Measured scan of single mutants.
Amino acid sequence: DTINITLPDGKTLTLTVTPEFTVKELAEEIARRLGLSPEDIKDTHNGKTLDPSLTLAEYGITPGSTITLEIK
């Protein structure tokens, strides 16, 4: 299953994830792909900052969802 990550420059990154991924694991994968530190990444969905300890499923993030990435 894939989700879309909207980057600060407007580009989109597509990642393969499972509903059990935590937001922290997602940030780590994004950081790895972009050459950043996971601590520099802030993920938001529907205007809410995502708690790193919760899973994508707990936020109702499903395949095809879009998450907005902010760099701290």
Rank of each mutant, 00 (worst) to 15 (best):
N4M: 10
L56P: 01
I67P: 01
T66Y: 06
K24N: 05
I71L: 14
G64P: 02
I71Q: 06
I61C: 06
L54I: 07
D9Y: 06
Y59W: 08
L34G: 03
L34C: 07
V17P: 02
L7S: 04
A57L: 13
Y59V: 15
L15R: 00
E20D: 13
I30T: 02
I71K: 04
T68C: 11
L36N: 05
T16F: 11
R33K: 09
F21Y: 13
Y59K: 01
A27C: 14
T44P: 13
N4K: 10
L15W: 03
I5D: 01
I61T: 01
D43Y: 15
D40R: 07
G10T: 02
E25D: 14
T44R: 08
A57H: 09
L26C: 03
A57N: 06
T49S: 07
I41E: 01
G35P: 01
E58H: 10
R33P: 01
P63H: 10
T66V: 08
T12R: 08
I3M: 03
E58V: 03
G60V: 01
T16I: 10
P63Q: 07
D40E: 13
T2W: 14
E58Y: 11
D43A: 15
T6M: 14
V23I: 12
T49W: 15
T44G: 12
D40A: 12
V17Q: 01
E20A: 12
I67W: 06
D1K: 07
H45K: 06
L15G: 00
I3T: 01
T44H: 07
L69H: 02
T68S: 12
T66Q: 06
I67Q: 01
L15Q: 02
G47D: 11
D40S: 13
K48M: 15
P19A: 07
E20R: 06
A27L: 15
L7G: 03
L26M: 07
I61V: 07
G47Q: 04
T62W: 10
L56S: 00
P19Y: 04
E25A: 08
L26W: 03
R32F: 10
K72E: 11
L54T: 07
E58M: 04
L36D: 02
S37W: 11
T55F: 02
I30C: 04
R32C: 09
T49G: 08
I67Y: 04
F21E: 07
I61L: 07
P38Q: 07
G35L: 04
T62C: 09
D51V: 04
P63R: 02
T44K: 12
K11G: 12
G64D: 04
T49P: 14
T55P: 06
E20V: 08
L69D: 00
H45E: 12
A27M: 15
D9S: 12
L50Y: 12
L7C: 07
T16N: 12
G35E: 06
P63W: 03
L69S: 02
L7A: 04
A57E: 09
P19L: 08
A31F: 09
Y59N: 14
G47P: 02
L69E: 01
T12A: 06
D43V: 15
L54F: 07
